[in-house]
Write a protein that binds this DNA or RNA. Structure first.
Length: 213
DNA sequence: CATTTGATGTTCT
DNA sequence: GAACATCAAATGC
């Protein structure tokens, strides 16, 4: 079974809201010394750079955010709450500081290895239905900060494209600033997405309204 | 089912 | 000293 062709760097060189929507249905593959793991991307969030109060780019290019400002197609991996890792795909040219957070996957390869890495997960969907969970399941950590996503240990690959009718938009999860902006993209009714708070508005994806560029 | 709370440590004010 | 792009267990229906 083929894993798909890696997405070219040009794929990432667009507005992060467009990249976030287009990343749904692609495949994240991690080739570690322990084995191969992969899953279909079913949930993403866009972070729009220095003018987005919720984006790490607001503090400028520090040692932590260094690779967030890197070239498109770079992995920005950071630690959150002292315990978990999150992985982003950097978009737009070097120096801008935009990225797409990968929030949930549908596991497709290496599920046994994911289970060993996440022994508390009861159901398969609990392996990867959150940004920290998917990093733990695939073995993604700070060593991959700054890695290219089109070659090497961590790659994003072409999958089955999703029609707009299967895409839903909500505000972003777990932030306090700019918490009303609809920059979370997910596959409607997919069991592998992370839980959406009941109070959150949900809207169908409309390319004209949601990709206002 | 939903909501609350503790863990844990780096970054930022 | 507070905030933090989270998770899992515990509690309350």
């Amino acid at each position: 079974m083929s894993l798909g062709t890696p997405l070219p760097v040009s794929f990432y060189d667009r507005d992060p809201r467009v990249v976030a929507r287009e990343l749904l249905g692609t495949v994240l593959v991690c080739d570690s010394s322990e084995g191969l793991t992969a899953g279909v991307v079913v949930e993403t969030e866009a972070y729009l750079g220095e003018d987005d109060p919720a984006c790490h780019a607001v503090v400028g290019r520090t040692s932590r955010t260094w690779h967030l400002f890197g070239p498109p197609g770079t992995a920005y991996v950071y630690r959150i709450y002292g315990m978990h890792w999150c992985v982003n795909a950097v978009t737009l040219p070097e120096g801008i500081g935009c990225a797409v957070l990968l929030r949930a996957l549908a596991p497709t390869l290496g599920i046994d290895l994911m289970r060993r890495r996440r022994p508390r997960a009861r159901r398969d969907r609990d392996l990867t239905n959150g940004p920290g969970k998917l990093c733990a399941a695939l073995g993604i950590d700070g060593r991959l900060d700054g890695a290219p996503l089109d070659t090497g240990a961590l790659t994003l690959r072409a999958g089955t494209p999703l029609p707009d009718a299967r895409v839903e938009v909500t505000p972003r999860i777990g932030i306090t600033r700019a918490a009303d902006l609809p920059y979370r993209f997910l596959v409607r009714d997919d069991p592998f997405v992370s839980p959406t708070p009941a109070r959150f508005p949900r809207a169908p994806y409309r390319s004209k309204a949601d990709a206002r560029l």
